[in-house]
Structures are given as structure tokens and as C-alpha cells.
């Protein structure tokens, strides 16, 4: 063996020595076993878009409260129909909705939502989050996405709302930060995340990193999903206790970061949510493809339709709360 080869051998061995303790991985495997065994992964989830969606509707509520006399609202209640909206959390390039949530705002004030994996296959080589850009983006892209989501879930959204990622940094700062709790310290250079364990208040860039981090978590994307939900709950809690004046200052931010179709009446939605909604959010059942294709997940429309119908109907036993992956203390990975 040459000296070079010897050195390479030693260098690689040294690199290999850096491996994490197998015990860490074992623990994850044991924890991961149960949910993984059921082939349809039903994980309570809230996408980024839901968080934004809630803020987007709760905040105008406050504005409405100030502008319209309360009596007027009681005399003229919201139209007696459920509203279904497709919420899309856009990635940094604004070309792909990375978070897709079909949300129903019930007449009774309930909020029920089904999250769709962004990698759901919609045709042989197209995933759900690519529909937007292949149809030219903008309103056309959004409408095309609404149509694909309808094919999968059997429910057509009447409206859509798009939220860009930068909005979260701004929103979380504007409400003075959002409290989250982590089970363990974690770092991820990709998402620029560097968090200690335990309760902490995140805002701005940190909030963005918290919501984006997917790598270096025990369960990857599933942990991110649990984070989204934790963030959402904290954000709702925060927003509901804010005073009206402060919330009113958020309106320009929302106009900047949330785009909807022209017909969406946020004030109407906001009135519904004012009744302290019961919130149920779950992911549509999905499975991995049986072939060797990677990067896609398969959503069976028959199962997805049944699931969506049950969840929207508020059938008991439908998942939604609390989130899998969040401990009893609300801490996430």
C-alpha cells in the first residue's frame, strides 16, 4: 500500500469515528416504529400556510371590530355556509407551494383542515407543488393547484390564499415573538437553525429557521410538521390575547405577505374565527410508492376523499389534536 493510500485509510477512519452514538438512532427507531407500521400515515399537522391563514383571518377581525359597531355584526350574521380555502405556503423562490392545506371554516366557528404532502404525485412525473409553476404561477397557477387538490380530495376550494415565507419572520416579530418548546438542542446549517432545548421565544429569522428546519431532526419532515403545529397553536394563543391596536398594525404586513383571490372575504372568515374555533388539522393518508421511484408520495384519491369528508364532517375519532410528535408538554423535536 502506498503512503497516500495509508493516509486515505486513516483519514476515512477518523471521519467514520465522528459517527453519532448508535443509541440515539436506536431510540428514534423504537419511537418511529409504531406510527410507521400503519401504512397510511395519519399525522396531525399544520402547515405553514395554516399559521399564516389563521393570522390572516384573525387580524382583520380586530380591524373589523373597530370599524363596524358590534350591533351591526349581530344583526347581520355571516352567510350561513361553510367556506373552503386552499392555503399555500410559498417557498423562498415563490415558485412552489411547499405547504398545502385545504381548510374549512365552518359556520359553527370550527376550523378543520387537511394537509397534503407537497410531494404528492399528480401525474407520472409531476408532484403537487410543481403544478403552480407549470401553469405559469400567479392566479392561473393557484387555480390549477386548486383543481389538482380537488381531484385528490373531492373538495373544491372556493378560494385560495398564498403566503410567502418571509411573512413569518415579520409576523412573529410583530406579535413580539412566539413561544415554542424543544425536546433537545438542535442545529441545522441549511435552515440556519441553532436552538437550545426547552421553552424559548422565537421571532424573525429564528422563527423562520424553526419552521424550515427539516434536516438533523430525528424524524425529518415529520418533526417539521409537528413544529408547524406547535408554532400555530402558540401563534393563535398570542394573537387572541393581543390588544386591538397592536393587531391593527399587522394589517400592512399581511397585505404584503398574503395574496388571495379577489373574491375572498377575510372579514367574514374572521367573524367565524372570533367564536373561539375548535381546531382540527390532519394530514391526508399517503403511502410511499411501491416501485423504486423516490421523491414522490402516493395519495390514493378514494382514501383521501373519504378522509377529507370525515374530517370536514367532524366525525368523532378523526385525528386532529393533539399533534403526533409533540409530547404532552407541547415540546417538539
Amino acid at each position: 500500500m502506498t503512503n497516500d493510500e495509508l493516509l486515505i485509510r486513516q483519514a476515512i477512519a477518523t471521519e467514520a469515528e465522528q459517527a453519532v452514538d448508535p443509541g440515539v438512532v436506536l431510540a428514534t427507531l423504537r419511537r418511529g416504529r409504531k406510527p410507521r407500521r400503519t401504512r397510511t400515515m395519519v399525522v396531525a399537522v399544520a402547515g405553514l400556510a395554516v399559521a399564516a391563514g389563521i393570522v390572516a383571518v384573525v387580524v382583520p377581525l380586530t380591524a373589523a371590530r373597530e370599524q363596524a359597531p358590534p350591533a351591526a355584526q349581530e344583526v347581520a350574521p355571516s352567510p350561513a355556509a361553510d367556506q373552503t380555502i386552499l392555503l399555500m405556503g410559498m417557498d423562498a423562490s415563490d415558485e412552489r407551494p411547499d405547504s398545502l392545506v385545504l381548510a374549512r371554516f365552518g359556520v359553527d366557528g370550527s376550523f378543520r383542515a387537511v394537509s397534503l404532502p407537497r410531494d404528492s404525485r399528480v401525474s407520472s412525473d409531476l408532484r403537487l407543488n410543481a403544478v403552480f409553476s407549470t401553469n405559469g404561477g400567479g392566479d392561473a397557477g393557484a387555480q390549477a393547484t386548486v383543481t389538482e387538490v380537488e381531484k385528490l380530495t373531492g373538495v373544491r376550494a372556493q378560494h385560495y390564499a398564498m403566503v410567502d415565507m418571509a411573512g413569518f419572520a415579520a409576523l412573529s416579530s410583530a406579535v413580539g415573538g412566539v413561544e415554542v418548546c424543544l425536546k433537545a438542542p438542535t442545529k441545522d446549517p441549511y435552515a440556519k437553525a441553532d436552538f437550545k432545548a426547552g421553552k424559548q421565544v422565537v421571532s424573525g429569522e429564528q422563527a423562520l429557521a424553526f419552521l424550515r428546519q427539516r434536516h438533523h431532526l430525528p424524524m425529518g419532515d415529520l418533526d417539521r410538521i409537528a413544529r408547524h403545529q406547535a408554532f400555530l397553536r402558540a401563534l393563535i394563543g398570542k394573537v387572541s390575547t393581543e390588544d386591538a391596536t397592536r393587531l391593527a398594525t399587522l394589517a400592512p404586513l399581511l397585505r404584503q405577505h398574503v395574496r388571495t383571490d379577489p373574491g375572498l372575504d377575510l372579514i367574514d372568515i374572521a367573524r367565524r374565527l372570533a367564536k373561539r374555533p375548535s381546531v382540527a388539522i390532519a394530514t391526508v393518508p399517503w403511502s410511499e410508492p411501491t416501485g423504486g421511484t423516490t421523491g414522490f408520495v402516493i395519495v390514493d384519491p378514494a382514501a383521501a376523499r373519504q378522509f377529507t369528508a370525515d374530517l370536514f364532517a367532524g366525525k368523532p375519532g378523526t385525528p386532529g389534536e393533539p399533534a403526533n410528535g409533540a409530547g404532552g408538554d407541547g415540546c417538539v423535536n
Partner: peptide, 26 residues
């Protein structure tokens, strides 16, 4: 884990990958 760490030069990425693969293999 050691193999993956040597290949990726990133112990946490290696952990992610090995976990992910073992869950699938299971």
C-alpha cells in the same frame, strides 16, 4: 453509521440518512 459518516463527512446528515433508511427497511 460509521460508513455513512465517512461518506457524507457530516455525522448528523449520516444519522438522518441511516434512520430514514432503517425505518424504510423495517
Amino acid at each position: 453509521l460509521r460508513y455513512a459518516t465517512a461518506m457524507t463527512c457530516d455525522r448528523y446528515l449520516a444519522q438522518d440518512i441511516v434512520q430514514e433508511v432503517l425505518l424504510r427497511a423495517q
